[in-house]
């Protein structure tokens, strides 16, 4: 299957799914003549139209990443998701230092340099947000 076909299937599924889900938007009483379904249906019509268009006129295939690049991508996504989950447990500075070190490695630094830079950047961010702006970032179990 070509790229465009794959996109067409994905967009078609998204559009159809959204359109069907919008069927379930039932109003208790009529407040406006158009109702809550019209715009979701417009969105799903656009997606379905795009799917048909792509299926009929497929363009060039994209160059999808090679296996090693794919591993790097997966690692970045995992690191970012992991940060989201350990943030309340480890606290902002520790979690972010680890994230920056992990990402830094993927972009060609060593662990030591990565941890050092990570600490510097996360410390600056923490001071900026928590002290400077009074926004709350989790301090973690050591706070």
């Amino acid at each position: 299957m070509s790229d465009a076909r794959r996109w067409a299937v994905a967009l078609g599924a998204l559009g159809a799914g959204a359109g069907l889900a919008a069927l379930g938007f039932r109003v208790a009483f009529v407040t406006d003549p158009l109702g809550p379904r019209a715009f979701p249906w417009l969105a799903s019509a656009l997606l379905l139209g795009a799917a048909v268009g792509l299926a009929r006129h497929p363009g060039d295939d994209a160059v999808w990443p090679a296996p090693d690049a794919r591993r790097r991508l997966a690692a970045v996504v995992v690191a970012l998701l992991a940060w989201s989950f350990v943030l309340p447990l480890l606290g902002f500075v520790a979690a972010t230092t680890l994230l920056l070190a992990a990402l830094g490695r993927l972009f060609g630094s060593g662990w030591v340099r990565g941890l050092g830079a990570g600490l510097a950047v996360s410390g600056v961010l923490y001071l900026l947000f928590a002290w400077g702006l009074g926004l709350s970032l989790p301090a973690g179990p050591w706070g």
Binding site: L103, G118, L137
Partner: peptide, 17 residues
């Protein structure tokens, strides 16, 4: 290796804050 992770950390921190 500092800049790109830094951009990620900045974005995530902003959203969380």
């Amino acid at each position: 290796w500092i800049l790109v992770p830094g951009v990620a950390a900045l974005s995530y921190t902003s959203v969380y804050a």
